[in-house]
Write a protein that binds this DNA or RNA. Structure first.
Lengths: 105, 105
DNA sequence: ACTTCATTTAGACATTTAGCTAAACGTCAC
DNA sequence: GTGACGTTTAGCTAAATGTCTAAATGAAGT
């Protein structure tokens, strides 16, 4: 899960995922969308693979990348979901009320 | 939004947010949960402030941090939400079907 | 005023990261 | 097999990041 957030911390990689959201694409096709070198893109792909966010399929001399949506959803929804769930009942969020602080008593 | 994902890329900072999910806490109280120095925690807090993920309130000689849930939700749900929405109608995700690739034709 | 406590700032250091070029690897077409 | 193409690996540099200790700041208590 850490790997997923690490992968998402780079704008280029997030954009790659957004492109893959529409349809699977080859490495070269993805790379065409960015002003960086091929090897740099390859490194980004490696990070996405390391986070298990993409599936790889070699077809001839091209490599097709495919989004693994469930992994992305599990990580992000799992994380933010815990917050929302736990907060529907607590968290006054009122700037005027100091709210109890423990430990510094 | 980039700042939010950058902030979330570190496990310590994610853990801080999870602690703040329960209730607001002072810097020192938060720091007690981690095996790193005070200044290191202060740097993490600065990143969270930079991402606008926390509110700060100085009370006497302590500083109270408060989670800004809406910012977290907007970033994460906004991002993953676009994926899920766009995908409910497309994305076969079937390993057996190559799916059409454009550009390499 | 002096001290003490909570937190941040400053400065240093090691590691990681994103980027590059050049070279290697695999596959296809000839 | 040779050459071209798509992609990755290797090796490098510059910048960013996480960590530390020491020092500065600010508020409270004596």
């Amino acid at each position: 899960m850490n790997a997923v957030f690490k992968a998402l911390s780079d704008p280029t990689r997030r954009h790659v995922l957004e492109l893959l959201r529409e349809r699977p694409m080859t490495a070269g096709e993805l790379a065409d969308h960015f002003p960086v070198s091929g090897p740099t893109m390859s490194a980004h792909f490696a990070v996405l693979r390391g986070a298990d966010l993409v599936d790889v399929q070699k077809v001839g001399k091209t490599v097709i990348y495919r989004l693994k949506l469930s992994v992305l959803e599990d990580a992000l929804l799992g994380f933010v979901g815990a917050f929302s769930a736990a907060t529907r009942s607590a968290q006054p969020a009122d700037p005027a009320s100091p709210a109890p602080i423990k430990g510094t008593s």
